[in-house]
């Protein structure tokens, strides 16, 4: 694949954008017709707060909002919430609403928290982060999702009594909106049980930002896997180096067409790294299939290499250096 040229052309182009930032911080005005006044946030709050908003946002209307009162946000007794006495109610999250109300609604003057908003995702998120920059969100800024312009409301339904992304069975469908390939992964013959609702994406991933690759809940891949597979943690007397280094060197974490979520079937998987003189270096062909003329079925069928090297994740047996005990 000849990617270098287009890659570097694109990088050059983007570098141009970056370097021009300091010099040119405003868009060039169009010469022809005057542009419509850009939408902007209002600066004044409504007269009565939520009581103003709820005059239009009625139950059964086009923009239902009442379920907010069934959620943690809609709790007056918790002094942290938008509806606690003295707080800004709807306008805590949607911004000063007088302009929006005076306009009779519409997208201008308000943070709708929707993708169709005139505000950028970062601008919309700022309202959420004003209260939620702690805990898991400490590293949100410049995290993978933030850098890819994901807004909080792209995943969270704030007005729903049960936010689908916080419910085990429904969370994957929210993630699949962007992570298309993973939906297919979990339908592969060997897959973690996300398809059945007994496991969910956030069991392994920290979507609000982590310093690990793939936003994992623990600092490394292996530490994440050990939360459910502690029996593979060791340290063993005889370690298998790639196992101790990174589970994903041999396994697909989501799903695979091969047994045990392997990246390919043994013996070829193992022969990528093992080619000592003797049986590991021998090519296993279809001649070793049942009824074939060749021998060596033990190296190809059933568990293949694992027929003997069953302690592939490490062994604590004093004679187990070949991972056979």
């Amino acid at each position: 694949m000849k990617l270098k040229k287009p890659l570097f052309a694109a990088l050059l182009l983007l570098s141009g954008f970056a370097f021009s930032a300091a010099a040119e911080d405003k868009p060039a005005a169009k010469a022809a017709e005057p542009p419509p006044a850009p939408m902007s946030m209002g600066t004044e709050y409504t007269e009565k707060g939520a009581d103003t908003c709820l005059q239009c946002h009625v139950e059964g209307g086009d923009f239902p909002v009442y379920e907010i009162f069934k959620t943690k946000h809609g709790n007056r007794a918790d002094k942290r919430t938008p509806f606690a006495p003295g707080h800004l109610q709807c306008e805590a999250c949607h911004g000063p609403g007088k302009k929006h109300a005076d306009n009779g609604g519409g997208p201008d003057g308000i943070n709708s928290q929707k993708r169709t908003s005139f505000l950028t995702p970062q601008q919309r998120n700022k309202y959420c982060l004003a209260c939620h920059q702690n805990g898991a969100r400490t590293g949100w800024i410049a995290s993978t999702h933030d850098a890819n312009n994901v807004a909080c409301s792209d995943c969270h339904k704030i007005h729903a009594e049960r936010d689908p992304v916080l419910t085990k069975a429904t969370q994957p469908d929210v993630c699949y909106k962007c992570h298309k390939k993973e939906r297919a992964d979990f339908s592969k013959p060997s897959a973690h049980p996300v398809r059945f609702g007994t496991m969910t994406c956030s069991d392994c991933h920290a979507p609000h930002g982590a310093n690990t690759a793939a936003l994992l809940v623990k600092p490394t891949v292996n530490q994440t896997c050990y939360t459910c597979h502690a029996e593979k943690r060791g340290p063993f007397l005889w370690e298998h180096a790639p196992v101790a280094e990174d589970c994903t060197l041999c396994h697909y974490p989501h799903g695979s067409v091969n047994q045990w979520r392997l990246k390919k079937n043994p013996p070829l998987l193992c022969q990528q790294c093992h080619s000592v003189a003797g049986h590991p270096s021998v090519a296993r062909t279809s001649a070793s299939l049942p009824g074939g003329a060749g021998g060596g079925q033990a190296f190809l069928l059933a568990g293949s290499c694992l027929n003997c090297h069953s302690q592939i994740h490490g062994s604590n047996h004093p004679s187990g250096y070949k991972l056979m005990r």
Partner: peptide, 13 residues
């Protein structure tokens, strides 16, 4: 903003 008069009377907590 002064929110002292924001009664939230329509709010169905």
């Amino acid at each position: 903003v002064d929110t002292s008069q924001w009664k939230c009377e329509s709010c169905k907590f």
